[in-house]
Amino acid sequence: MFEARLNAATTLKKVLDAIKDLLNEATFDCSDAGIQLQAMDNSHVSLVSLTLRSDGFDKFRCDRNLSMGMNLGSMSKILKCANNEDTVTMKAQDNADTVTFMFESQNHEKVSDYEMKLMNLDQEHLGIPETDYSCVVRMPAMEFARICRDLSQFGESVIICCTKEGVKFSASGDVGSANIKLAQTSSVDKEEEAVTIEMQEPVSLTFACRYLNAFTKATPLSNQVQLSMSADVPLVVEYRIPDLGHIRYYLAPKIEE
């Protein structure tokens, strides 16, 4: 038997919003440690890795490891039926072919349950090598979303160049060219508004805007975003989910022909 409950549906709703445009379907791997999801987008250019720890749930029970193939479009439709402050419970029997979502209003006067068929998805799991990144940038998530949105008007690629002075985002195309430079913040009163850069050596990489903009759908989950870069390896865009886990997006760089 698998059962996982969150006292507020809002986080799970945001998690679905963060992945449903990039992935059509994915397997939720459940164990007593929590829920893991790893899937590539259809073009195999990016990879989503989601971790929701069992201790972040208000109730979590997983008697036997369980892999649930979910159609994320359908799951998102079901979660749209929950209010942010509803309690949400996911339930599935061990060798189930369906999963049930139960939503309970705060005053317990309204209880809804939705049963969704599970899918048999072939599990292609990728090994992600431990990497000591040359540059790690932490910045406000809203700022990163704004930069990706603004620059995608000027070109279909963004060059991210990180030095000890700061991080520069550039784009160019038919309209013209655009550069946004962020300096490392010296002192801010609110930690979450800081721009911090840990640099071992400078890095400059080119990425497709459409994937970066898809990743920023996770912005509502976290005040900050972390960008990890090294030459000729995928970018990692990480959003921490407070008290529950994280979502990491990996994006393969574009390279000169």
Partner: peptide
């Protein structure tokens, strides 16, 4: 510029 795929960096386990 040509777009690489993630599978050219991460191997299937």
């Amino acid at each position: 510029m040509s777009q690489r795929t993630i599978t050219s960096f991460f191997t299937k386990t």
